[in-house]
Amino acid sequence: MKRLTWWLAGLVWIGSGALHAQGLLDELNAVIEEPTLPVRATFKDTRIVNVQSNETPAEGVLHFVIAHRFGTLSSGAYDLWGLDNAQMRMAFDYGITDGLAVGVARNTYQKTYEANVKARLLRQKTGPEAFPLSVTWYSVAMANGTRLTSEESPYPFTRRLSYVHQAVVARKMSERWSLALVPSFVHRNFVQESGEAHDLALLGVGGRCKLAPRFSVNGEYHHFLTQSFGDAFSPSLSLGVDIETGGHVFQLHITNARGMFERSFLAEPAGSWANGDLYFGFNLSRVFTVKS
């Protein structure tokens, strides 16, 4: 009994002193409701590997991307495993608001020009008004810029156009894992032979595993839901890493799609993972705060 009494006396002494401030903090925690906050940085960049992520450039930010895809790794040492055959894409995306961006780009492949718009429709949030998903819309028009040949000249300009529309449904599952489902619709105005498909629907899945604060491993796969544009094409599969330094993000990857615009890498990946016809490539992005 005596021992218990002493024990209690000790507890009272500790309780009355040190615990007072802690008590205030607990009391504060009990009355302060957690604010509703948007989930940020589901992906490090506006692309997972090839496909768009749910991220858009912030308001007033110019997002500049230089991307390269080299020749096939299977081309061997003579071409330095493809490094002698670089294709590039140069893109400018600008954030008009925090959830709306427009962009233009130019690709080596078929001298293709792009104009695109990206809009955040829904945003993942935590707190009392939590929402589980982010949904971002992306639409791009692509124009083949190669010189007109004489047999092409009677056709209107619109035959050179193709379009892709997609919704990026993304969720940051945890600090480490982010996942995205990307249904896409591809339309091309021109086909080589009558009877070839003008339209293609795909369902893509992409994700990242963030292994360190500035490093993640990314991957994506796009399944053909309808008749593909030709037997030469296989579904797009890409794996890569994101490395972030200050204002740059480096994305290094291996992919079976050499084109860097949506119609090309979704509908027309010419390489095959089974045969080792893979391309090494990178995206290098830099942000410029144009308007603060």
Binding site: L37, R40, D98, V287, S292
Partner: peptide, 21 residues
């Protein structure tokens, strides 16, 4: 005169969005 303060880290606002990220 005892006090306690707390702040949500995610509610800090920076001039540049990338800094905030």
């Amino acid at each position: 005169g005892d006090f306690a303060f707390q702040v949500q880290m995610r509610a800090f606002h920076f001039e540049k969005a990338l800094m905030e990220e």
